[in-house]
Amino acid sequence: MSDASSKLMDQLHTQVGVKHAALGITLLIYPLVASDFFTFQIGGYSLILGTIALSLMMLVGYGGIVSLAQLSVAGLAGYLVAILGENTSGVHGFGWPWWVVVPTAIAAATFFSGIIGAVAARTDGIYTIMITLAISVVFFYFTRQNYEIFNGFTGFSGIKPPVIFGVDLIAPVPFYYLCLAVAASCYFAVLYGKRSTFGLAFQGVRDNARRMEALGFSPFLHRVFAHVLAGVVAGMAGVLLVWFGGRISPGTVGINVTIDILVIAVVGGIIHPIGPFVGALVFVLLETFAIDFIVPERFNTLIGLVFLTIIFFSPNGLVGIWDRICESITPNKKGEGV
């Protein structure tokens, strides 16, 4: 080993840490040992839902803003992929190339999120929840009733991820790695952002908006900008979501799914960006396998009970439980994984 490479390893060690390295390696080799079903339906889907929930975690954890409109933001990106790209529903499907469609969809989602931020940023607490919930409900009903743009109740189907450099992203393993790359980028960006100037200022707004004003900051603009950043994350996840399912309809952006995203973020824990991914994994596993134990109609009861149990014992979700375990024993092994 040369000096330079050992220095690089040192830097990686301090920057990334042992836990991240172990988790990263696990996630990288996971599709090599897991079946296609586990790679795609469990791994890929958890990463996508986790990324949407991450966009909520950024706002709640760092800014104290509970936004229930993150799924709508992701949904808009998904709809645009169907409308601007190709679908088999016979409506729209402009057939634009993916490298135009994807940036456009994410940009539109980001803009949408910024608008939501501008509307919601002057409110606090329960009022922010009410406004964003209202936006989410409006978006759901709008997509269901509007046939000109969103093709109403039917939505769009037959949407396929592109083939890039000869790699067909519809195949489980490449798709998993795509989701992993997007999720990891967003995760590290959010982790890094906590100590950035904007991240600190955003936490300052959370702790005391009035004092931030008196220090020369505009809390309003900081909240709006946070929504913009969260919109980028949610938009990327929205593109993956429509590629994952191959279809998008009002049900994709329904209120029950909105609540699922909230549950995922809270169950996982909103104090650390890993939380949403842990929450998403638990949620997807329950959603997939609970049917073996209970009748499907009771799924929401089960989710609700698990949710209550976790929050009852740890307000900071599964990450909070993990932290407590780490404190009581030596933290030398990673145990959470998505």
């Binding site: 100037t197 300052g204 931030m212």
Partner: peptide, 18 residues
């Protein structure tokens, strides 16, 4: 806390970098 106080006056309040 102190950094925010100085940053607020000096600008570059929206930097996403450390």
């Amino acid at each position: 806390n102190m950094y925010l106080a100085c940053r607020g006056i000096l600008g570059r309040r929206f930097s996403v970098l450390h």
